[in-house]
Simulated assay, not measured.
Amino acid sequence: NINREFRELDVPTDVLSFPMVDYEAPADYGILESDDALAMYFNPESGELLLGDIVISVERAFEQAENYGHSIKREICFLTAHSMLHLLGYDHMEDEERIVMEKKQEEILNALGIKRDC
């Protein structure tokens, strides 16, 4: 339902990202240094940066974990890493972007010790 409402795609999906920051380039934090950034992107009570929201379909995650032959933990970690990269301005619509994003996903999962057989 969320995919249909926000992306006008009437198909199930595994994860959706709703970034709050409009990066000019992936992970280019220069935009956060503007005078308006404090009001737009930071929680006024805590001062924490608000990157956006992530919605993971646990049902799809279980299906994909089974289809790919790895654990639900690995699948949820992958979807979280993937979505966090979107919140940081990365995308995978073009091949060049996809290659960068896939490399970063693997780096994140490897740093956390999350392997395909986990």
Rank of each mutant, 00 (worst) to 15 (best):
C118S: 07
E45N: 01
E24L: 14
L49D: 05
L112C: 01
P19N: 06
A65G: 06
N110R: 10
H82K: 07
I108R: 01
I76W: 10
D35Y: 00
E106I: 13
L87G: 11
M93V: 14
A37N: 07
L88V: 02
N43I: 00
I99H: 03
L51M: 10
F62H: 14
L109S: 04
D35G: 15
L87F: 10
I76R: 07
D91Y: 03
S17E: 09
L9K: 14
L51P: 10
L9V: 07
S71T: 13
Y23L: 05
R116N: 09
A25M: 12
S71Y: 01
I56Y: 06
V58C: 06
F18H: 14
P19I: 14
V21Y: 14
R60H: 14
L38N: 11
K103V: 08
G113F: 04
I31P: 08
L85V: 01
E63D: 12
F42Q: 00
K115P: 06
V100S: 03
M101V: 11
F18G: 05
D10Y: 02
I114L: 07
L50Q: 15
Y41S: 04
Y68C: 04
E102K: 08
V58S: 00
E94K: 15
V21C: 13
L49H: 05
E75V: 08
N43S: 01
L16H: 06
L51K: 13
I31L: 07
A37V: 02
F6N: 12
V15P: 00
E59D: 04
K73C: 05
E45H: 15
K104W: 02
L50E: 10
F42E: 07
V58T: 12
L32K: 10
G47N: 04
E24G: 13
K115E: 12
Y29P: 07
E59C: 03
M101W: 00
G89C: 07
E94Y: 11
K115I: 05
Y68I: 01
E106V: 09
V100M: 15
K115T: 14
A39F: 06
G69F: 02
L112W: 11
M84D: 01
A27P: 02
E63N: 04
E106G: 02
S57E: 00
R98E: 02
A39C: 03
D28I: 07
L79I: 02
P44F: 01
E45T: 09
E33P: 04
K104V: 10
A25S: 12
Q105H: 00
K103H: 02
E106L: 03
P26R: 11
I31K: 00
E94P: 02
L88T: 15
Y29K: 11
A39V: 14
F78M: 03
M93D: 13
H92V: 09
G30N: 15
P12M: 01
T80V: 05
E33W: 14
I54K: 06
N3F: 08
L9Y: 03
F42V: 11
Y29F: 15
E107H: 01
Q105A: 00
R74P: 01
V100K: 06
S34C: 13
I72A: 02
